[in-house]
């Protein structure tokens, strides 16, 4: 059993050689990017999305897996793009160790340089990268890989299913205002490992779902407490702190 074809062919050195289809998409995106970013009344969130691609991949012990972190953003409300971005990834299994993190094409732009800082912490199974476009110009918008993460599968790994999560993420518009971020994770099936299907269908903390309500149609008698953890926010702060230390 090998890695998926896409993961096999995606090597850090090949980032500039984007697939033709993706290129085509990008052209369309750039053509219309500004226009649709500014069409009013979408009433969606102004948020930068980071997701790992592919979101599911198979890998054998001893193999190296390369995943892309794709960033998708329409930029700010007045059309400005992202000037710098940072993200941290983490795996939840000793079977999967990050060995490299490299920039993708998202922030690269004509006539501007990219300041890059990276760190790979094999001990804690995490890696981060921060990138800044200089000069920022109008910034970047659209959907493209912003980083490539190379993970080594331990030679002695047992079959398992490991999650690669983006534990911190940050996108700053060229107006120097931060964008909110959201993330999606990916799963690496090591040696045919299956995910433990202990998926919890209950309400996330701090959310009341209709199906959890008493069926009488009456309103709940008590307001539940408020105790959610701002996990993403806290990790983003951790990331910021790490970033600051490297300066």
């Amino acid at each position: 059993m090998g890695t998926s074809p896409r993961a096999e062919t995606q090597r850090p050195a090949e980032h500039s050689r984007a697939r033709t289809a993706a290129r085509l998409c990008l052209v369309v995106l750039l053509l219309f990017g500004t226009a649709f970013a500014s069409v009013p009344v979408t009433a969606g969130d102004n948020v930068a999305l980071f997701y790992v691609e592919p979101d599911e991949v198979d890998a054998d012990p001893g193999e190296t897996v390369t995943l892309e972190v794709v960033m998708s953003t329409h930029g700010g409300w007045s059309g400005e793009g992202v000037g710098d971005a940072a993200l941290a990834v983490e795996t939840d299994s000793d079977a999967l160790i990050p060995v490299a993190i490299d920039p993708g094409p998202f922030l690269a732009g004509d006539g501007s340089d990219l300041e890059v800082r990276t760190n790979v912490d094999e001990e804690n199974a995490s890696a981060w990268i921060s990138q800044k476009r200089v000069p920022a110009g109008d910034g970047a918008t659209g959907t493209e890989p912003v980083a490539t993460v190379t993970l080594a599968v331990a030679a002695d790994a047992e079959p398992t299913s490991a999650t690669v999560s983006i534990v911190g993420s940050q996108a700053t518009l060229v107006s120097e205002i931060r964008q909110a971020t959201m993330t999606r994770e990916a799963t690496v099936h090591v040696d045919g490992g299956e995910p433990d299907d202990a998926s919890d269908d209950g309400s996330p903390e701090g959310v009341t779902l209709a199906e959890d309500e008493p069926p009488t149609g009456d309103d709940a008698d008590a307001i539940p407490g408020f105790g959610h953890a701002l996990a993403v926010g806290v990790l983003a702060l951790v990331l910021t702190a790490r970033y600051a230390r490297t300066r």
Binding site: V47, P204, V207, T208, L230, V232
Partner: peptide
């Protein structure tokens, strides 16, 4: 902005509500 918490996409749009802060 850093404090914004995105919920699991599986619950987006389901009948229900955030608890009061």
């Amino acid at each position: 902005v850093g404090g914004v918490e995105y919920l699991d996409e599986a619950v987006w749009g389901r009948s229900g509500a955030l608890e009061p802060m």
